[in-house]
Nucleic acid binder design. Structure first.
Lengths: 229, 229
DNA sequence: TTCCGACTGGGACGACCGTCCCAGTCGCAG
DNA sequence: CTGCGACTGGGACGGTCGTCCCAGTCGGAA
């Protein structure tokens, strides 16, 4: 409704497209549907964007920027109290569970992002868009990993870039699992596993202490659910 | 060209659809394109299938069955020599690297499967198809985990079903990473990390022995690539 | 008041989509 | 030889797609 900047219309259309993709997939994001979702005329679409592909490209480029606050409880900024979560394992646990919470709170968000990724990866011409998208994810994860490293002094057995990329790998796997099964409890358990998995990339097992360890002695699962000995 | 069984035509069309989806995405898998890829007339499509959606459904249901041999070096069958890979960690390493190798050897395969998953997940009506697809993945992973458990006596800190699902989570994340970056070396390093990650789900850190550990002392990465001390 | 840029309405285009139809061909089982 | 089932060719349908066009409205800056 605002009459002045073209960029606002572009942003509105992008927001509308993201909503549709999250709801019904990339195929449903037609020019007419996007314009309608944004409450605009079809003509306005091609007034703001040269083509649908141009919107798609800008959609992928900008969508990541708007969700950096959701991925973790603000590891990017340094205002984090080391005393509240002393071990790196606890940091990882908090972060992964927070991510799962954000996943459950807004399921369509990551569904849209993942659908967009697969759309971009499908054709060779659009693959670079997916690379751009994930380089931002890598950066996001990297800053989180750096913060935890600085706060706890963990030592990793591989470069921080690889640790960060592995965080993205874990997040994607968890996201997919959530989208498929829609099982909140299960997904949170995967977050637990992911936290352990991440700390397994630290040098010494002594650097972390799994507080969810079963009873001492010789516990653990070897066969079916019932057998815990 | 074979003239007798309808099921052969159906199989051929499914194979063609999978090829197209792997090459150009789900959107490109039109009835005409599928028929052409299979070398059949368009009329033959609707002779074999009631509709495109019927093919899609059968595609998802059957595609997993044909790739069970690719996911790991035959953990399903019991003919595996325990002496060659004694530790569970080594088993995991071999399996994940074998998976990455199969990924690199046939990139379109898993790209198609993942694209199919996202397509199914997008709309509520087709989501059950994705659940079916992944229940088969879970089963596949479960038999592998069971085999390794039996061979090495690892004890897990969670039920085997969850361990198996986490294997699927790791595999999906790795697959996505490969599809996006197309970096074979990087992906293999993620496989290394995944092997460590999986064994981090075992009860005692003593159950595994990372043979890729850096020098003893106080090694490991804390900041940028260069600093290894 | 003028002007410009944002935006609308509607129509139109060529292309492709999924689906249906039907007369006709061909190979093999009976 | 007959029949049946697999398959073809082509045409056709109603619909939706992305894109373009254009005369016209309207708000605010000049």
């Amino acid at each position: 409704m605002a009459h002045h900047p073209v960029s606002e219309t572009r942003a509105a259309l992008i927001r509308a497209a993201l909503a549709i993709i999250g709801r019904d997939g990339v195929e449903a994001a037609t020019t007419r549907a996007i314009a309608a979702e944004a409450g605009l005329a079809l003509a306005s679409f091609h007034y703001a964007f040269r083509s649908r592909d141009e919107l798609m490209a800008e959609l992928i480029r900008t969508a990541v920027d708007e969700e950096d606050n959701a991925i973790s409880p603000g590891y990017a900024d340094e205002s984090f109290d080391p005393a509240t979560a002393p071990t790196a394992y606890q940091h990882a646990q908090i972060a992964f569970h927070a991510y799962v919470d954000s996943l459950i709170a807004d399921p369509d968000r990551e569904k849209a992002m993942l659908a967009l990724t697969m759309w971009a990866v499908a054709k060779a011409e659009t693959r670079p868009l997916a690379a751009i998208q994930y380089s931002k994810y890598d950066t996001l994860a990297r800053s989180a990993v750096e913060a935890v490293t600085a706060l706890t002094g963990v030592r990793w057995r591989m470069p921080l870039d690889e640790v960060s990329r592995f965080v993205v790998v874990l997040s994607d796997g968890i996201t997919l699992s959530w989208l498929i099964h829609n099982d909140a409890e299960q997904t949170h358990r995967m977050a637990d596993a992911a936290a352990r998995a991440l700390l397994a990339q630290a040098v010494s097992p002594g650097d972390y202490d799994y507080d969810t360890l079963p009873e001492p002695g010789l516990p653990g699962y070897r066969a079916d659910e019932g057998e815990e000995r």
